[in-house]
Computed example of a mutant assay.
Amino acid sequence: MAKKPSQSPYERWLDQAKAVAQAENPLRMPYDVFLKEAGQVAGFVAARWEPTASLPGLQRVKARLPASTADDILSLVHAAQTAQTTLLLLVDPVVIDHGERARFLIEELESAIEFLLDDGVDEPADTQLATIQAFHADSAQRSSALHQALSDYAGLAESLKDRLMEIDEAFDVALIKEARELARALAAAPAAPPPADSEVKEATRIRNGMLVLLMSKMGLVRKAAARVFQRHPEILREVTSTYERRRRAAARRAKAQQAPKPAAPAAPIADRTAAPEAH
């Protein structure tokens, strides 16, 4: 009897994804950043499962957090990637060819600029960076959004080019030119013929369902970690969202820069009751 082929990750989670499918994208961060953090959460489970001589392990809450969680998360990452590719082939096929490189360039430029400006000195570029980050925080991974993000980060990086090269000798200034060229290529790409609306809706719901399942697994890990490592904040930091920390920090900077400066104290009023000066 022929051996039954094993299921792909997409096939494994498809029925569950359909059960929790929704029309709205559940993410509050860029798709690729979310998948990267999912991989880090899976790695955290694997690294922190067994206790050590000085630290507890996640194993102690295995009744709530199964030992298979790390593998489940990685499987869901692959399933979500398949669902995302299926959707993009329908609505925005140009992203299949250029999206990965575009996201790499955006991340590299943002990271370099953020490192440069994280010096405790307020300047116009800080406001520009905070504005760009806020504007693109929830951008979908569509060619139009990637085109705008590439243009914005390349423009800011160009204005800071000399300082970026000075603060980081390994910074590749060619990334700025490449980002501009790729932005132009995305903008000039011909539009794909519109797919059937029903196909897009179904592919979108399945992709979103995969993301919901993945978010649930990641949330379970973070709750378990908060319980097990409640007295070890440095360990907890390993599993919390770096993106959310950066986003909150950017929001705080933007708010601080927009806050009105306190008015200068009024000049003291002369005491009219004082005795006249002797002549």
Results as ranks from 00 to 15, higher is better:
A80H: 10
V95P: 09
T82H: 13
G57A: 08
L87R: 15
D72H: 03
Q84Y: 12
T52M: 10
S75F: 02
Q81T: 13
P93F: 06
A63L: 13
A70D: 07
R60K: 07
A83S: 13
Q84S: 15
T69M: 08
D72E: 13
T85C: 03
Q81G: 11
E50Y: 07
T52K: 06
D72W: 00
V61P: 05
A53Q: 10
S68G: 06
T52H: 07
T69P: 00
L76C: 02
G57M: 06
D92V: 13
V77R: 08
E50A: 14
R60M: 10
L74P: 00
Q81F: 04
V91A: 13
V94N: 04
T82G: 08
P66I: 11
T86V: 13
T82D: 15
V91Q: 11
T86P: 01
A79I: 09
V95Y: 11
S54V: 06
R64V: 09
V95F: 09
D72I: 00
T82Y: 07
T82N: 12
K62W: 01
P66H: 10
L65W: 02
V61I: 09
S75D: 14
R60I: 09
A53D: 11
E50H: 09
L58K: 09
L58N: 02
V91W: 08
L89H: 15
T82C: 10
T86R: 15
S75C: 07
V94C: 05
H78C: 06
A53Y: 02
L58E: 01
D92H: 13
Q59T: 07
A70M: 10
G57S: 07
D71Y: 00
R64D: 11
L89V: 08
V91H: 08
T82P: 06
A53W: 06
T52G: 13
Q84K: 15
P51I: 03
V95G: 03
T82L: 10
L58Q: 02
L88T: 14
T69N: 01
V91M: 12
L90A: 14
Q59H: 08
V95A: 07
A70V: 03
A67R: 09
S75K: 09
R60L: 05
P66D: 04
K62D: 10
S68R: 09
V95C: 10
D71W: 00
L89A: 14
T69S: 09
V95M: 14
V91Y: 11
A53L: 11
L76Y: 03
L65T: 00
T69R: 08
L55Q: 14
T69A: 08
L65A: 00
V91D: 14
H78Q: 15
D72C: 00
Q59D: 07
L87S: 12
A53T: 09
D92G: 12
Q81W: 10
A70W: 01
L74H: 08
P51Y: 04
T52D: 06
V91F: 12
D92P: 14
A70P: 08
T69F: 00
A70F: 04
A63P: 01
P66N: 06
S54Q: 07
P93A: 13
T52P: 05
S75R: 04
L58T: 01
R64Q: 12
L88K: 13
A53E: 11
T85A: 14
H78T: 15
R64L: 08
G57E: 01
P56M: 01
S75A: 15
A63I: 07
L88E: 14
P93K: 08
L87Q: 15
L90T: 05
